[in-house]
């Protein structure tokens, strides 16, 4: 029993960074911006979150600074793709190369190249009274760090925003047909920039979560593909908040399972277990196929003058 409940607890914890990053991507794609630079944004968010938490001693400062640096870096992407109409994929790759390079540079400057890792105190879990005593799901959902609650709250808010509010529908129109949206008086360019702010902030927070709420230190390459798995989660979750939550819980489960199997098994090289999340991503995408349910104008540049 304790194996299972521990596994589920870890699944939720591992799902949260994916969930934050994937929701960021959802906001981006809903405004027509396919951002594959998530991995890089999370990497710089992770480092800056760690660094500022290390200096200030507050995990919340770390999370906030992670968000800010994510926004700052993503503004480069926004300027290039929205204003200059650069290819989204190509520019996402540019961010994936720039942001980790910046992160490792800042790390070297600050901590030198010594091998001893500096550590920080992780964010404390907060128990929600009464609810946490519900068997099984109590500790699972109501005895976590505040970031977990925020992530789940964000899923609900996102779903509500995109389906029930006028602003959300306007926002989606930009991703489906920017020209039609523009004729309705929606400011397409501003929406796209807003999308990049949200995407940058959430990706940065997702990265910062890894250093401030999950592992108490920073190692290079700690994102290890989560940015791309989050991208898969958006497709797998069919561009809806709930679907993305389910996808992220699934990938989080794979990650948690992998760690436990590594510990539990003897004789099988541990790398085979580490492959599980990546193989699961490939299988999940293959099984679900490529429905064309994404925003129609995603990835296409928007030029005002063009007809």
């Amino acid at each position: 029993m304790s194996f299972v409940s521990n596994l589920l607890l870890a699944s939720v914890r591992m799902a949260v960074p994916l969930l934050l990053i994937a929701l960021g991507e959802l906001y981006s794609e809903r405004a027509g911006m396919v951002n594959i630079g998530l991995e890089g944004l999370a990497a710089i968010g992770s480092l800056v979150g760690f660094l500022t938490c290390f200096i200030s001693g507050s995990t919340w400062v770390g999370i906030l600074c992670g968000a800010l640096v994510g926004i700052a870096v993503n503004m480069i992407y926004a300027f290039a793709t929205v204003t200059l109409c650069a290819n989204h994929t190509v520019y996402g790759m540019a961010i994936n190369i720039l942001a980790p390079a910046l992160a490792s540079f800042i790390y070297r400057i600050f901590f030198g190249s010594g091998s001893d890792l500096s550590q920080i105190t992780l964010m404390k879990t907060i128990n929600i009274p009464i609810l946490k005593d519900i068997p099984i799901i109590g500790p699972l959902l109501f005895s976590q760090t505040p970031m977990v609650y925020l992530a789940f709250l964000l899923v609900i808010l996102t779903g509500f925003f995109f389906t029930k509010t006028q602003a959300g529908l306007n926002y989606r129109a930009v991703g489906e047909n920017p020209k039609a949206a523009a004729t309705l008086g929606i400011n397409v360019i501003r929406t796209k920039y807003l999308a990049c702010v949200i995407c940058g902030a959430l990706s940065g927070i997702g990265g910062a979560y890894l250093t401030t709420c999950y592992s108490n230190t920073y190692t290079e390459g700690n994102i290890s593909g989560r940015g791309f798995i989050a991208l898969a989660a958006v497709i797998f979750g069919r561009w809806s908040g709930g679907g993305i939550l389910a996808a992220c819980l699934f990938f989080g489960f794979c990650d948690a399972l992998q760690i436990r199997l590594q510990v539990a098994s003897v004789g099988i090289p541990y790398q085979f277990f580490q492959m599980i999340p990546y193989v699961a991503t490939v299988i999940a995408l293959t099984v679900i196929g490529s429905g064309k349910s994404g925003p129609k104008a995603a990835g296409k540049p928007y030029r005002k003058e063009e007809r």
Binding site: G225, A232, Q271, Q274, M275, G289, S290
Partner: peptide, 26 residues
């Protein structure tokens, strides 16, 4: 996977990077 299942080749090929790196580890 791209031509039969219409998969996003970027995500898939990156996943296979990680798998190859881990296999090299083995």
């Amino acid at each position: 996977l791209k031509i039969t299942r219409g998969q996003n080749e970027m995500i898939i090929s990156i996943m296979f990077n990680y798998i190859a790196t881990l296999l090299m580890g083995v």
